Amino acid sequence: MKAIVQDAYGSEGLLSLRDIGVPVPGDDEVLVEMRAAGVGPEVWHTMTGKPYVARIALGLRRPKNPVRGWDGAGRVEAVGAKVTGFEPGDEVFGNCEGSFAEYARAKADRIVLKPADLTFEQAAALPVSGMTALQALSGTSRPRPGQRVLVIGASGGVGTYAVQLATMYGAEVTGVCGPAGADLVRSLGATHVIDYTREDITDSPHRFDIIVDNAGLRPLPVLRRALTPRGTLVIVGGEGGSGFLGGMSRGLRAVLLSPFTAQNLRNLVSLTRREDLLTLKDLTEKARITPVVDRTYPLAEAPMAIRHLRQGHPLGKLVVTI
Rank of each mutant, 00 (worst) to 15 (best):
A3D: 10
Q6R: 13
Y9S: 01
G10C: 05
L15W: 03
S16C: 08
V22S: 05
G26E: 11
D27M: 09
D28H: 13
R35Q: 14
A36K: 08
H45I: 09
P51K: 12
I56K: 07
L60W: 15
N65I: 13
R68T: 14
R68N: 14
G72Q: 05
A73L: 12
V83S: 00
V83N: 02
T84M: 02
F93N: 04
A104Q: 00
R105N: 14
A108I: 06
D109Y: 06
I111P: 07
K114M: 12
A116C: 04
A123M: 07
A125N: 06
P127I: 05
Q135I: 12
L137F: 03
L137E: 02
S138R: 15
P143V: 02
R144T: 05
P145M: 07
P145G: 06
L150G: 00
V151M: 02
I152W: 06
L165D: 03
M168V: 09
G170L: 10
V173P: 00
D183T: 15
L184Q: 03
I194T: 10
I194W: 00
D200R: 14
I201N: 06
G216K: 01
R218P: 04
L220P: 09
L227S: 10
G231Q: 06
G240H: 01
G240A: 04
G240I: 03
L245R: 15
V255E: 03
L256R: 10
R266S: 05
T272H: 10
R273N: 11
L278M: 12
R288M: 13
P291E: 08
P291Y: 14
D294Q: 11
Y297R: 04
A302S: 12
P303Q: 01
H313Q: 12
L315D: 08
V320L: 03
I322P: 04
